[in-house]
Structures are given as structure tokens and as C-alpha cells.
Write a protein that binds this DNA or RNA. Structure first.
Lengths: 339, 339
DNA sequence: TCCTGGCACTCGGTAGCATTGAGTGCTAAC
DNA sequence: GTTAGCACTCAATGCTACCGAGTGCCAGGA
């Protein structure tokens, strides 16, 4: 059930790797040619029929070669793929990117998703770190127009949150300045997550305190709503290119999923394990993803799991390469963010 | 050459509208049925053969009906389409969106692109206002870590620009605070565009002035590089859905184009005219867009052209509806931004 | 002069049929 | 346990016939 003898394993491996490369069902003859284990095609056929009975491979139709099933890919990934190294140019590309990356965290994550997409030639996702530990480093109230203010909050991870406030009456510069100072006193050093529940007190009745209350409330609503806005998608266009035989509607649905950041972020969070996670086809239990695989890895910031990066491609994908890319990028990203 | 008699025009209109609806080549009989001009199919055929000779319509193959050419669509759009109104539910949807929209400009533009995509069922683009008139309303230097600072600049349009600065040595709170104050003095009230060329003077030799110089330089580089980051794309996934017969590679290329914001923004800026602009198929002179049409309109802020909104769909699109949607949304967006 | 009915023609699409070839499963012999 | 041989299956291909939508053209009529 769970284990295959050496020859069956070799055959399965050959089928997977050949199919990934050519997208054509693999026949017994091709297997004998590519594996070099000294047996005839007939023997391979016998083994293949066992592999099929056990659910590792399947035939699109009688008289066609074999194609890996989800289970076949699973076995390949778990038992056969082994650790791979990226090719030198790709390793170099990743290293170059991170040594020259000096942007703030949000932009870094966005660029990282594009990097991963380019390296793997699939769509890539990056989920930003949990905001648990993030604290407010600065808070300001800025007057944009007579009755329009902007609450600006700078966070310890380098991201900036802002929210517009519309007033009913004009307000003077002095009041704004006073409110800005008080807001800063109230917020600086606080954790972002606490802003949602515990609002700073500003019970005073003067104009400035009213502004502080308005700003706090606007901020609370903003943070509550945008907490999950830490998803970055790179290379979505690859999905359209790689779905050779796919019906276009399924591509459209996938692209739609990638546009729904909230849905996707929760999905990824559910899937994430402590190490490399690979979800193949129907394992994802989503109609959109039946023919897709996800290769995910967490990245660590100061030893703690901070977020996820991953690749989204067809089940027929080069898992070794995807895995190597995801691992490499996650390590480098983690190191970069730990600085 | 340029003008068609009434009957030919009616026939062309019927062909365009029928083809947009059904995606099937339109035959002479269908035309007689849908137009109700009291002539026989044979007469229509004669007219159609003239229309074909003049390049307004074409046959996919002998013995098929006719399909509009780019020129046919062009004539339809210029002479036949007339002004259309959106249906009530769509008008309502747009109105609702803008009455309840209280976000800052960048988020508003992003959401607007998604609104336009939903209303038209095509991909939509929104180009943000030129940043000529934008001035700095606030500038701060915030310490994130011992050797990491963040320059934060709040602009009059409600957007916030930021840039990380890495230092070689630790720096004290006092120095940062002093630098922040001086930076604010230097920048507040200045136009964003001037930041690229005219740097604020900070010739002093003390620590704070060095920080101000570093911050200014970081900001200068940031602004120079990100000036064109004012493009928002909504509903890109629609492209995959609507390209029925299209080869998937062309869809992939289109999606790629939509991911290249800089390229797309310059393209749109070149195309924009003072009023509604419609570019059909090959008129776009880009291989990617050969089978696509763009429906663009500027939006006005305080009477001045500020930016562009538009729809990107297949040449076989409902131009009247797209036109109506683009016009409506651009007006409302302009009004909203003029507040 | 313009319109129209009639008619031959074209050609994509579909169905039927034979052929080919890749690939299989099975069996008997090694 | 392995393999050669063989019958079998079936997608793909090519060919033919046929249908039908649609055309172009022409001759006769208003």
C-alpha cells in the first residue's frame, strides 16, 4: 500500500518526470529507454498495470500511455524527488535580488512574489507576516483640506496605514497639531492588533480630543478591515500560458481566485505547516484547484514562522524545481527580514 | 468612401449588433429579420457585398455570414452607436459606490477600476492624476530599528510615500527627532515633482543634517522611480473568460501587459484625447492588442483633465454599453475627486 | 433603375468508414 | 521472474458523402 519496490518506484519516477517534461502520456517503451533498468517493455507493462491498480497512475484511454494521478505525484514528491538544487543562474538571480533589495517590507514582499514567479515560471504568492508583534512607531494627523484630515500610522515593520477623515466643520491648524500630538502619545508603542479592541482614551470635550476620537475610530475600522491585506501575487499571467488543454473558464476562475486576496490568504494560512507543504490537485478540496498544485513554505523571522511563500501551478509541474525555489527564496527572505 | 447611405448603414448596424450579441457571423436572412426594412435577403446580399468591398465587413470563409472589420466597428462607433444610457441597476450601483466611498485617493482609484470591471464585465484600467500639482503636506523621519529609519511623506492627494534608510551606525532618538523636524521644514509645502530635481539644502555637518540629506536623497530616488505607479487594473480575469476562440497564448500576453504598469500607463497617456477615445483592434498598433479595443475617457478634477479611465475588451464588445459606463464613471469619479 | 425570386455554387460541419500506430493485456515459453 | 509474441483497443488521421447556411449572379418584373 504505502511502499513500492525499487523497480516500481523507478518506473513511477520515470513516468512522472517524463510526463512533466513532455505533457504526453508515457508508454512502456519510453520508460525502458529512459530508465536504463535492464528489463523489457513487457515487464514494465506488468509493473505499470500494478501501479495503475494501486492508483498511482492512470490511462487517459485504453491504448494510451500512463499519466500520474494525484497519488502518483504524491508518492513522487514524498519518496522519490529528493532534495534538488536550483541551477546556478537562478540561484544567482535570487541572491542578487536580495542583496540589492532595500525597500520596505511590503514592497519587498511584493517584489519577492514576482521574483518567485519568474524563477519558477508559475504564479507565486507571498503572505506577509502576522501582525501580532507589530507596534506603532509613529502616528500623525495631517490636514489635507479644510475639512479633510488623514490619519497616518507608521508601523515597526515599515508599513504605513492611513485613513481619511471627513469633518463637518472647518478645523484650525492648532487643533490638528494638538490632536496629532495626543494621538501620537496614545498610539506610539502600542501593538497594532490592540488597536482593534482597546481604543485609546480621549474623554476630553475639546476640539482636539474629538479629533483624536475620530482618528482612532477611523483607524480601528481600517485595521479591522485591512488586516488581511498582506497577500502578494506575482506572475498571475503564467496561469493562462500553462493551461494548454484547459478550458478557458477554469483559467478565468483561477485568476479570479488570485484576485480575492482575503479568500486566498485564509486558504494559505490553513494549509501552512511547519515545513515545506505540497498540496496536489484534489488534495486541495477546492473545485478551482482540482488541477493545480501548491508548493508552500513558511519563512522564519528571528526563528519564528512569520509568513508563507508559495507557488501555484498545474499538477503537472516540476516539483523538484518548485520546491528548491520555494525553499531558497523563503530562506533568503527570512534572513533579509531578520536583519 | 466615408459615408454610407441609409440602408447600408442600417445593415452594418444590424450586423455589428447581432454579431456582438451572438458571436456568430451574420447572414443576409438574419439581417432582414432583425432590421425590418422591407427588402428581401437578396437585396441585403447585394448591399453586403458592397460593404465588404469597401472594407466594413468580411467573411471568415465563403458561404459564411459576415463579421464586422475594425473599420466596420469604427463606422458603427462614430456614426451609428449614438449615446446610450446605462441600465438602471448599473447606474444605481455606480451611484452607490461613489456616495459611500470615503477612502483616500489611491484606494478610491483602485476600487473604481474594479467597479468599472464589474459593470462592463471587461478588464478596466484607471490612471491616477498627474502629480504636478501635488504638494507635500507632512514629512517625518521614523526610527524603526537602531539602524533603520523610514522617511514618510504625506501628500496633498492623500497618498503616502515612504522609503527605508539603512544606516551604518546607531543613531540616537534626539538626532532622529531633530532631523525629522528639519526635514519637515524643508519639504512641507513643496511640490512633489520638485523633489526630483531641487533637493532641500542641508549643508550642516551635524548628525541630524546628515540624516536629512540621506532622507532627501532616498526620497528623490523613490519619487523618480515610482512616479508612474499610478495605474490600477481591475478585473483582469475577465480577459481569460471572454476570449472564446482565442489562443491561450494571446490571453497570457494580454495579462502580462496588464502587469506591466509602466508600459501600460505610457500607452494610455499617449492615447488619451480630450474626450472619449475609442481604439479598435489594429488601430492600437500593438501586436498584443490586435484583437482588443480600448474605450477611454479622461476624468476632470476642478475642470482640468486629471487622469484616464478605460475598458479593455475584445473588438467584439458592446461599445455603447462600454462607452456609457466609462463616461458615467469618469464623471462621477471626477466629481468625487473635486470635492 | 432598382428590386427580387430563383438557382448554382461554396464550404464548414458532421457522420460514417477504413487505416494506422502507439500502447496495452495476456499467455506461453524460457 | 522475465520476455517474446500476439491479439486487441482506441485516438488520430484521412477520405467520402451529405447537409445546410449562406453567397453571387442573373433574368425577369415593377
Amino acid at each position: 500500500m504505502t511502499d513500492l519496490d525499487e523497480r516500481k518506484a523507478a518506473i513511477l519516477r520515470a513516468i512522472v518526470e517524463q510526463y512533466v517534461e513532455t505533457a504526453q502520456p508515457v508508454g512502456s517503451q519510453t520508460v525502458t529507454q529512459t530508465t536504463g533498468l535492464g528489463v523489457s517493455a513487457a515487464t514494465v507493462r506488468n509493473e505499470m498495470s500494478v501501479l495503475e491498480r494501486e492508483g498511482y497512475i492512470t490511462q487517459p484511454h485504453t491504448s494510451a500511455g500512463r499519466v500520474p494521478t494525484d497519488r502518483g505525484y504524491r508518492y513522487y514528491v514524498d519518496q522519490l524527488a529528493g532534495a534538488a538544487q536550483l541551477a546556478a543562474p537562478e540561484r544567482r538571480r535570487i541572491a542578487d535580488f536580495f542583496t540589492s533589495a532595500t525597500m520596505a517590507m511590503d514592497e519587498l514582499l511584493s517584489e519577492t512574489s514576482q521574483l518567485l514567479a519568474r524563477v519558477t515560471a508559475h504564479a507565486a504568492v507571498v503572505v506577509g507576516p502576522e501582525t501580532q508583534a507589530v507596534v506603532v512607531r509613529a502616528a500623525h494627523l495631517v490636514q489635507l483640506q479644510a475639512r479633510v484630515l488623514l490619519t497616518v500610522v507608521v508601523l515597526s515593520n515599515g508599513s504605513v496605514q492611513k485613513e481619511v477623515i471627513y469633518l463637518d466643520d472647518d478645523v484650525g491648524e492648532d487643533d490638528v497639531a494638538a490632536a496629532s500630538t495626543r494621538l501620537a502619545q496614545h498610539l506610539e508603542g502600542r501593538r497594532l492588533v490592540d488597536l482593534v479592541t482597546a481604543l485609546p482614551d480621549a474623554r476630553g470635550a475639546d476640539r482636539a480630543d474629538a479629533l483624536v476620537r475620530a482618528a482612532s475610530e477611523a483607524l480601528r475600522a481600517h485595521v479591522a478591515q485591512h488586516q488581511s491585506e498582506l497577500l502578494y501575487v506575482g506572475g498571475a499571467s503564467r496561469l493562462a500560458a500553462e493551461h494548454d488543454a484547459f478550458v478557458t473558464t477554469s483559467t478565468a476562475r483561477l485568476l479570479e481566485l488570485l484576485e480575492q486576496h482575503v479568500v486566498l490568504a485564509t486558504l494559505l494560512r490553513e494549509l501552512l505547516g511547519p515545513g515545506l507543504t505540497i498540496r496536489i490537485g484534489a488534495e486541495n478540496a477546492r473545485a478551482d484547484l482540482l488541477e493545480c498544485s501548491l508548493v508552500l513554505a513558511p519563512y522564519l523571522v528571528e526563528g519564528e514562522i512569520a509568513g508563507t511563500i508559495g507557488v501555484l501551478g498545474p499538477t503537472r509541474m516540476d516539483y523538484r524545481k518548485a520546491q528548491a525555489a520555494v525553499v531558497t527564496v523563503s530562506q533568503q527572505l527570512g534572513r533579509q527580514l531578520s536583519r
